[in-house]
Computed example of a mutant assay.
Amino acid sequence: MSSQEEVQVIDFEELLRFIEKRLASAGKYVRREDIITILQAEEAFLMEKGVLQEYSE
């Protein structure tokens, strides 16, 4: 990783709560397991496209 790249760590639990809150405010209920499945698919897609990369310290 070059020194110009920025690493941003996202708290997964915080992300889940945010999504649940947004859905609830729109009158929608989606099971947490379903949200996790969607997020995992999105992560795989973004990694395949090179937008996300695994980070290890």
Rank of each mutant, 00 (worst) to 15 (best):
I35A: 01
R17D: 12
F12S: 12
A24I: 05
M47I: 15
L23H: 04
L39H: 00
I36P: 00
M1D: 12
A44D: 15
I35W: 00
S56C: 09
E57V: 08
E48A: 13
Y29R: 15
M47P: 01
V9I: 14
E6R: 09
R22H: 12
I19G: 02
E13Y: 11
E13H: 07
R32A: 02
Q40E: 10
E14R: 08
L39C: 01
Q53W: 01
A41L: 11
V51T: 08
V51H: 01
T37P: 01
A44L: 06
R22L: 09
Y29D: 13
Y29C: 05
M47H: 08
Q8A: 14
A44S: 13
E54F: 07
L15C: 14
I35T: 00
T37E: 07
K49E: 12
E20C: 03
E42G: 13
R22N: 10
Q40F: 01
V7H: 10
R32S: 05
E42C: 09
A41N: 11
Q4G: 10
F12A: 05
A24R: 09
E57H: 09
A44P: 02
G27F: 04
S3K: 09
E6Y: 12
V30R: 12
L46H: 06
E43G: 05
E43K: 09
I38A: 04
E33D: 10
K28F: 10
E6Q: 13
V9D: 12
S25P: 04
A26W: 09
I10L: 12
L23F: 04
E33Y: 13
L16S: 01
L39V: 00
T37Q: 14
A24E: 14
F12I: 02
A26K: 15
E48V: 04
L46Y: 12
S56G: 06
I38D: 04
Y29K: 08
Q8I: 15
E33L: 07
M47K: 14
S2D: 14
S3G: 15
I35N: 00
V51Q: 03
L39W: 00
E42L: 10
G27E: 05
T37L: 11
S25M: 15
I36C: 02
I19F: 02
E43V: 11
E20G: 01
V9S: 08
R17P: 00
E13I: 04
Q40Y: 07
R31Q: 15
K28W: 01
L46R: 07
E5R: 10
K28I: 06
A26S: 15
R32C: 02
E54A: 10
E42Q: 06
G27V: 06
Y55Q: 06
G27K: 05
I35L: 04
G50Q: 04
I36Q: 07
K28Q: 11
V30W: 06
K49V: 03
A24C: 09
E48R: 05
Q8P: 02
E13F: 02
G50C: 06
L23I: 08
S3H: 14
E33N: 07
L52P: 02
E42M: 10
Q4I: 11
E48W: 05
S56A: 14
Y55K: 08
I19H: 00
I19R: 01
D34S: 14
A24T: 04
R32I: 11
